[in-house]
Design a protein around this nucleic acid. Structure first.
Lengths: 298, 298
DNA sequence: GAATTGGTATGCATATCCGTATGGATTGGA
DNA sequence: TCCAATCCATACGGATATGCATACCAATTC
C-alpha cells in the first residue's frame, strides 16, 4: 500500500536549489541569470533566500564572481543530482509531448542550412504551420546531447550511444563553376586540364588541396588562391567566377548560376545522416520533421 | 576550463516538478497540499502549469484523486530522483547549519517525555535560549529516517545503518507504589508476599504479566486488574494507590509521591540509547542537545 | 592611476503567485 | 436514494517575487 511519506525535507523552494546549482556552475550570479533567462537580482535573492532557509552560507563574494564555501561544496553534488534528474525529466517530457505546436531546432552545416534547407523548411511549415523551426549552423554532434538542437544533419555516423541516426543517402561532391569561368577554361577532357585552373579552397589547413592531389589532379597551392571555411562564402565566390568549387551535386545541379565542369570526373562520396537524441525521438512534432527531412533530402 | 553548459532543459520551474512528485505520491492535490503545507489550489495550478509548460498531460481526474497518465508514469521516476536528491541536499544542509537558533525535535517514549525530560529541557533552554525544542512521543526508530525527529531516546540499539547511537546507561525498572498502598501491603520479605498485590499493567497482551511470572512472582491475571499502554496513565494510577507499577528507578526515586516497595527485588534492566541520523549529527545545534541529553540522562 | 570591464547590492513599480472562500462533482455508506 | 465526506475548479484580494534602473565594488588594462 501507500507508505505515508514525510515531505518536510523536500518542501524547501526547489527553484532556489536551481539558482544555487547554476550559480555554482557558472561562477557568478550574472552568468547564472543569463543562463536561466532571469535577472541577476532575482538569482541573488534566490541564493540569499536559500542560505537563509537552510541556515548555511553557500557562497563568498570573490571579487569576480562567487566562490563556494566548504558548506557549499558539501551540498553542490546533491544540487547537481537534482539538475541531472531535472534534465532527464525534461527530456522525457519532450518525448511525451504530442502537440504539433512548438519549436523544432535543426542543426546543419552552413551549406545545407543555407542552400538545401530553406525550400524544404518552407514546404514543411506550409504543411504544419504550428511548428516553429529554428536552424542552428553547427558541425558537431554534441549539440544534440546538450539539447541545443533536436535534429542534426551530419556527414558522419555519430558514435554516441544516446543518439540515433538514419542514413539518408550517399551524396557525391562534384566540381562546379560559373558558366563564364567554365567557358574560360575551355573543354575539359582529363585531369591534366586542371593544371591551370583556379579552385576556391574550403579550409586553410591544406586538406582540400591534399584531397584533390590524392585523387590525381595535377595542382598545387598556386591553384587555390582563395580559401574559406564557410561553404556559403565559397559558393558565392564560385558563382562570381572566382574558381572551381566542390559541393554536393544535388546543391550544384539545383543552382542555375553554376554548371558542372566535367561529367566523368571522379566524385568525392560522403553519406548524409539524420541524427537525434534517443530520448526525444518519440516526440510527435520531432517525428514529423524527421520524416519530412528524410523524405525531402533523399 | 569550464565547459559551457546548456541549461535550457533545466530551466523549467522546479517547484512544479515538486508539485508533480508529491501529487503523484500522495494521490491527490489535496493530500499533496497538506503534505507540503500549501493550499490545494496552489498545487493544482502548479501541476496545471507544468503540464502546460511541458505540453504533456500528467494526470487524469479519477473521482477520488488524480491518476497518472502513461506519460506521467514515464516521468515520475525522474521527479522521484529529483526529490531524493533534494532530500539529501536538505539533510546535508541541516548538517552544515551551524547556527544555534532553530528547532530541535526530540523523540522519546511517553514516560521519558513526560517524567524525565521536562526539567532537562528547562535547563537546556536556559543555557541556550535560541534553541526551540519539540518533543515527539514515539517508540519507533523510523521517525529519525523520515526526519520527523532529530534525536531519539530509545531502549534498544537501532539496526539501521544510517543511524548512529550512543549508549547512555543501563537503567533498571523497579517496583513503586503510593505510600498508602505500600503500607496496606505490609512489609515485603519475599516474592511470595506479592501473591495478593495489585499491579498496574502496561499492555493488554499479557507481556507484562508473563515477564513478572518469569521472574518468579506468584501472580496471575487476577493481580493485574487494570492495564494501560501509556506510561503516564500507569504512573498516575500508581500514584493514586491503584497498585504497583514498574518504572525506571531514576524516575521513581525522583518522585516524592511514590516509594520503593522492596530494596532486594530482582530488577528488570534495559539500556538507554541516544539515536540520531548520521547525516544530521554534525549540526551544531543538534550536537549541543545531544551532549546535553547524554550528560543529563546519565 | 584613471578608465574599462564584469560583477554585486538596492529601490521601486509591476506582474505573478498564493491563500481563502465557495461552488460543483464524485464516491461511499445508510 | 439521499446524505456526508472528499476532492477539484474558480474567483478575488493580498502577499510575494520579479525586472529595470542604478549605485557601488573589485579587478584588469592602458
Amino acid at each position: 500500500m501507500h507508505i505515508r511519506m514525510d515531505w518536510k525535507n523536500v518542501s524547501f523552494d526547489w527553484n532556489r536549489a536551481r539558482a544555487f546549482l547554476v550559480t555554482a556552475e557558472e561562477g557568478s550570479l550574472s552568468a547564472a541569470a543569463r543562463a536561466l533567462g532571469l535577472a541577476q537580482p532575482t538569482l541573488g535573492r534566490q541564493v540569499e533566500a536559500l542560505q537563509e532557509e537552510l541556515g548555511v552560507t553557500l557562497f563568498e563574494r570573490a571579487g569576480r564572481g562567487m566562490q563556494l564555501t566548504p558548506a557549499g561544496h558539501a551540498m553542490i553534488e546533491h544540487a547537481r543530482a537534482m539538475g541531472e534528474a531535472a534534465g532527464r525529466l525534461s527530456n522525457v517530457a519532450f518525448g511525451q509531448n504530442d502537440t504539433m505546436e512548438g519549436p523544432v531546432t535543426i542543426s546543419a552545416s552552413d551549406a545545407y542550412a543555407g542552400l538545401l534547407l530553406p525550400p524544404i523548411i518552407e514546404k514543411m511549415t506550409e504543411a504544419e504551420p504550428r511548428i516553429t523551426v529554428n536552424v542552428v549552423v553547427s558541425n558537431t554532434a554534441s549539440d544534440l546531447l546538450r539539447r541545443e538542437a533536436d535534429i542534426a544533419i551530419r556527414n558522419f555516423r555519430p558514435e554516441e550511444p544516446d543518439l540515433i541516426a538514419r542514413k539518408i543517402r550517399d551524396a557525391e561532391a562534384r566540381m562546379f563553376a560559373s558558366p563564364d569561368y567554365a567557358a574560360s577554361l575551355g573543354p575539359i577532357q582529363s585531369k591534366d586540364d586542371f593544371a591551370k585552373a583556379r579552385f576556391v579552397g574550403l579550409d586553410r589547413t591544406g586538406q582540400f588541396l591534399g584531397m584533390l592531389q590524392q585523387m590525381g589532379y595535377p595542382i598545387s597551392e598556386a591553384n587555390v588562391p582563395v580559401h574559406t571555411e564557410n561553404f556559403l562564402v565559397m559558393w558565392a565566390l564560385v558563382k562570381r567566377g572566382m574558381g572551381i568549387g566542390m559541393i554536393d551535386s544535388v546543391i550544384g545541379d539545383a543552382d542555375p548560376g553554376v554548371v558542372r565542369l566535367w561529367e566523368d570526373e571522379p566524385t568525392l562520396g560522403f553519406p548524409i545522416w539524420l541524427v537525434a537524441h534517443r530520448d526525444l525521438h518519440q516526440n510527435r512534432r520531432l517525428r514529423f520533421v524527421w520524416d519530412f527531412l528524410a523524405d525531402a533530402l533523399r
